[in-house]
Amino acid sequence: MEFIKVDGRINKKRLALSILVPVVGGSITGWLANRNAQDKYKKLKQPSFAPPAAVFPIVWTSLYTIMGIAKYRADEKISHTKEEAQVIPLYELQLGLNFLWSFLFFRWDLRGTALIEMSAMLALIALTAYEFQKVDNTAGALMVPYIGWVTFALGLNYAVWKLNK
C-alpha cells in the first residue's frame, strides 16, 4: 500500500474520488451502453485471440482502479501548481473517450468509428502517462497496464470490425 502514499501521506477523500470516478463511470457506461452486449458479442465473428466476454468487466474494473490511483498520485503532486492545467484535462479527456467507446462499438454498432476513436484514445492515454510520469514516476508507471490493454483492445476492435463488415 506504500504506492498509494504521496509524500508519506494519503488524502483518503481525494483517493476515493479518484478511484470512484472511473470505476463508477465505467460501470454506468457499461450498464447503459452494453445492455445485451454479451449477446451481441457472442454473435459477432471473433478472432482467435478474443477473450471470453466475462473477462472484460474484471479487467476494466482493475484498470479503472489502477488509473484512478495514478490520477490521485499525479493530482497530489501537482495540486495548486500550473502543471495541473496540462495533466488533469488530458486524463479526463482520455477517460471520456474511454466511456464513449462502448457506445460506439456496442450500442450504435459503429465499429470502424470505434476503432478510430480508440486510436485517438490510445494516443491520449500515452500522452497522459508521459505527463503523469513527469510529475510522479509511479503515476506514469501505473498507466502502463492500461496502455497495454487498450493496445490489445485496439487489435481486437480491428479484427472484429474486419470480420463483421
Rank of each mutant, 00 (worst) to 15 (best):
M1P: 00
F3T: 01
I4C: 11
I4Q: 02
I4S: 06
K5Y: 10
L15C: 05
A16D: 05
L17N: 03
V21L: 15
P22Q: 13
V23I: 13
G25H: 03
I28A: 10
G30E: 04
G30I: 01
A33W: 01
A33P: 12
K42F: 14
K42H: 14
K43V: 09
P47R: 15
S48G: 11
F56M: 14
F56S: 08
P57E: 13
V59Q: 01
V59R: 01
V59L: 05
T61F: 08
L63Y: 02
Y64M: 07
T65G: 08
M67A: 10
G68L: 03
G68T: 10
I69D: 01
Y72E: 07
A74R: 00
A74W: 00
I78E: 01
S79P: 02
S79N: 12
S79E: 14
S79Y: 11
H80D: 12
T81S: 11
T81Y: 00
K82V: 02
A85W: 02
A85F: 04
P89M: 08
L90M: 15
L90P: 00
Q94G: 10
L97D: 01
L100K: 01
L100E: 01
W101M: 05
F103V: 06
R107N: 09
W108Q: 07
R111S: 08
G112H: 13
G112C: 05
G112R: 08
A114I: 05
A114E: 03
L115C: 07
M118L: 11
L124A: 05
I125V: 15
I125H: 01
I125D: 00
A126H: 03
L127V: 10
T128K: 00
E131V: 07
K134S: 03
G140K: 03
M143A: 01
M143H: 01
P145V: 05
Y146P: 00
Y146E: 00
W149Y: 08
V150I: 14
T151E: 06
F152E: 04
L154E: 13
G155F: 15
L156S: 09
N157R: 08
Y158T: 13
Y158W: 15
A159L: 08
K162Y: 13
N164A: 10
